[in-house]
Structures are given as C-alpha cells and as structure tokens.
Design a protein around this nucleic acid. Structure first.
Lengths: 144, 144
DNA sequence: TTCCTTGCAAACGATTTGCATTGGA
DNA sequence: TCCAATGCAAATCGTTTGCAAGGAA
C-alpha cells in the first residue's frame, strides 16, 4: 500500500473519532511506514525531531494506538524465562485482556511443520534461519 | 523437568563460571520456574520480596541471563508498527547479528496452515485464539 | 583473605503528566 | 468559538549504579 492511500485511511479513521490528523502525526505515521519493521519511540523520534517534541511524540503514539492505527509489537517491560536447555523448546500464548503469558508445547508433528515453514520463509527473505517462535494471542479462560 | 533437576543444572552452570548460587537466586529461579511463562521483574519480585531486595533482583536477573540460565523473552522498549488493516497480515524475520527486523508475508498455503495450527494450539491451552505471529530468527544476507 | 554478593540510597533514562498556549474544524 | 493538540518543565516509574558491609570459598 502506498503512502497516499495509508494517509487517507488514517485520516478517515481519525476523523471518525474526532482526533486530528496534524502535521506532526502525519510525519510520525510516515516514519513508521517507511521503516519496514516495528519502531521504538526513540527511533521514530530520530526521524521527526525537528517537527515533533518528545512529549507530543509519546502522546500521539498512545492516541494512535488507542485508535487502532498503530499496534504495539512489544511492550516495555522486560520478561524473563528459563533458557530452553532447561525448559525444552516451547511457544507462548498471550491473553490480550490481562497480559498473562503461558508456555505451550506443540505436538511433534506441528512443531516439525512449523520448523520447516520457518526455515523456508526465512530462506525466501534471504535469512539463514536459526530459530523461530510462535506467539498466539487470544482471551484466556479467566477473561472470557 | 522437576525443580530439583533444574536446581542442579543451574548450580553446575553457575559454578563453572564462578557465580554463586545463593539463596536469593535460588528463590528467583524457583519463582520463574513455577510461573509457567515469562515473568517481569515486578512479578518475580512479588514472589520473593521478603528475601530479595529489588536491586539485587535486577542484578541477579542480568547475571543469570548473561550466564545463559535465563533468557529475555522481550526487551524493555516498546515498539510500534502500523496496524494490520493498513499493512496486511504479516510476520517478522529478525537478524540475530545486527538486529534488523523485516516484515514478511507467507504464501497463502503456509498462512492457512499456521492459522489453523495457532487456533488449535491456543484452544488446547484454554485460549480463544484471535491472532498469531511468527518470529523467525536468523542471519540476514549482509551478516552472512 | 579474597572476591562475589548484598542492601540501601542516589542516579538515570524512558515515559507520563500539569498547565498554559496554540491552532484546526 | 470550542476543544483537541502542543510544548515546556516537573513528576513518575522502572532500572541501574556507587559504595560500604556481609558472606562464601
């Protein structure tokens, strides 16, 4: 999708919600779009420092996320787990409501499938695959 | 793997590196192990507040991670991307060397497979699956 | 004795908030 | 005009560090 289209879609979504699509926000969206992967506030700020002060940057990120224009690829608190040589290879399920993260193990066939799929897709992207992880999002039992 | 075994493995790994396996660290490992999923420093601290002050907690987390006993499931800076209704559904490839993150799209068949696999596995874990993401790690072209 | 680890307090960096001001619909 | 957005500075939160004291090898 090209810049112009995204721009129009974002403008529409925001105006429905009485949120203004100002020059600063436009710059911010453009920076994220051009990056080609998830960006931190600092990285975005690097691209828009002249036009957007850091406080507005953070405020706009929060507003745009709440409006569904941006999505949070990973949160800001570090999370630790036992290394895989202690736990065995596994994946995660995350509750979108309460934030719980549970470990899950796939059955052997699925794991084999996934491994092959990851190696294949990684290869096509020009990467020499060395690992993969699957994160499944949803509502946990308690939040349902 | 049971608590006792993990304990021995950790003790071994640490002693090789001249790192002491103190009561506080043991408590910390136990807390992570019992949690069943990646834990934040705050969550771990909740379990060991009587015995481990927050500064020691953070220090031990860093030491244990460097020793390969803990692994960081997600870092501490928030990262944003455009929502999927703007970009289309996609996944990520990460270079373990330079940290680049690239978006990739799977072919339809693989995506279908993955979607089914995620819904299935999420369901078994008691989650009502609403999404999934695959992160593939490896070496990018430039780093190879 | 040696040196890793601890515990407290101070320092830090990232993020948030209060408030007066600006600017778009 | 009205209310969202801005910009600065102060506050806050999670995390890190300095340093003196404690404890294991």
């Amino acid at each position: 999708m090209k810049e112009r289209e995204i721009d129009e879609l974002v403008r529409g979504r925001l105006s429905e919600r009485n949120i203004r699509y100002t020059a600063g926000r436009k710059a911010l969206i453009k920076a994220v779009q051009l990056a080609g992967g998830p960006q931190s506030a600092a990285e975005i700020h690097k691209q828009v420092r002249r036009s957007v002060p850091i406080s507005s940057l953070y405020r706009s990120l929060a507003i745009l996320e709440a409006a569904g224009v941006l999505s949070l690829h990973q949160g800001k608190v570090a999370r630790f787990e036992l290394a895989e040589w202690l736990t065995g290879h596994h994946h995660h399920v995350l509750c979108i409501e309460c934030g719980t993260v549970d470990d899950i193990e796939l059955d052997e066939a699925s794991e084999e499938l996934l491994k092959r799929l990851a190696a294949e897709a990684g290869g096509q992207a020009g990467y020499e695959e060395s690992g993969h992880r699957l994160e499944i999002e949803g509502l946990c039992r308690r939040c349902r």
